[in-house]
Amino acid sequence: MQIDWWTLAFQVVNFLAVVWLLSRLLFRPIRRVIEEREAADRAAAQAAQAKVDEALAVKQDYTARLADFAEAQRREEADLHKQMAEERDALLAKARSEAEKLLDEARARIEAERSQTVDQLRAQIGELATGMAQKALGAPDIVTPGAALAQASARLAALSGTDLKDLVTDLGVEGAGVTVVTAADLPDPARDRWRQMLQERFGAALAIGFETDPALIGGAELRFPHAVLSFSVAARLREAVETVKG
C-alpha cells in the first residue's frame, strides 16, 4: 500500500474547503436563525415577564385597595355597631323606665287592691266573728236554763225510728246508760227534769249519769254508748268554723 501524497494534499484542501463551505452555508445561517429565535423567545419571555410584573403590580394595588376597603368597611361596621349599641341602650333604658313605671303602677294598684281586699276580709271576718259570737253567746235556745233540755227532748222526739231503735238497742246492753254532760254542774231540780225526760223516752230502768265539761262552754251533750247528741255552744262554734271553711 502506498500513499499518494498528491491525493492526500488534495483531500486536506478539500476537507478544509468543506469546513469553509459548511460553515458559510450551513452552520452560520442555522446558528443565526437559532440565535434570532432565541432572542425572539427571550424578548417574548421578557415581555411576558413584564406583563407578569405589571399584573403583579395591579394585583398588589388591588390587594392594597381591597385591604383599605376592608378597613374602611370594618370602621364603618364598628361605628354602626357602636351607634346601634347606644340606640339599644337608650331603648333599653327607656323600656326599663317604662317597665319600672308600669311596675310601680301595678304595685300601687295591687297594694290598693290588697288593702281593699284585706279591709273587706277584715269586715267579713268581723261579721263572721260577730255572727259566731252571736251564735255562741247569743244562743238562747241552748244557753238559757232548760233550753238545752228542751232541745234534747225535741231532738229525741224527732229521731227516726231506725235511729231511735239503734239507741234503744245500745242502751239495752247490760251496764249501758246515758251520760248528761254540761259545762257547769247541774242543780238537782235540773237533773230531775233530765231524768224524767230521758226515762220517758227510754224507760225507767235507764241508768243516767251526770258529768261536767267546761269545754262545752254552754248547753249540754247526751252521750250514749255509741252516739253523742250535742246541744252545746262548743258544738255550735265547731259548726260555724266548718261553715266558714266552706
Binding site: 491525493t7 488534495f10 474547503a17 468543506v18 463551505l21 459548511l22 450551513l26
Partner: peptide, 23 residues
C-alpha cells in the same frame, strides 16, 4: 503533472452537491 484520483473527484462531487443543496 498532478494526478487526480477518483476519491478526489468523488469529494468534489460531494462538495458540489452539498453546496447546491444548501444554496
Amino acid at each position: 503533472p498532478v494526478p487526480i484520483a477518483r476519491q478526489v473527484v468523488t469529494t468534489w462531487v460531494i462538495m458540489a452537491a452539498m453546496a447546491i443543496f444548501l444554496r
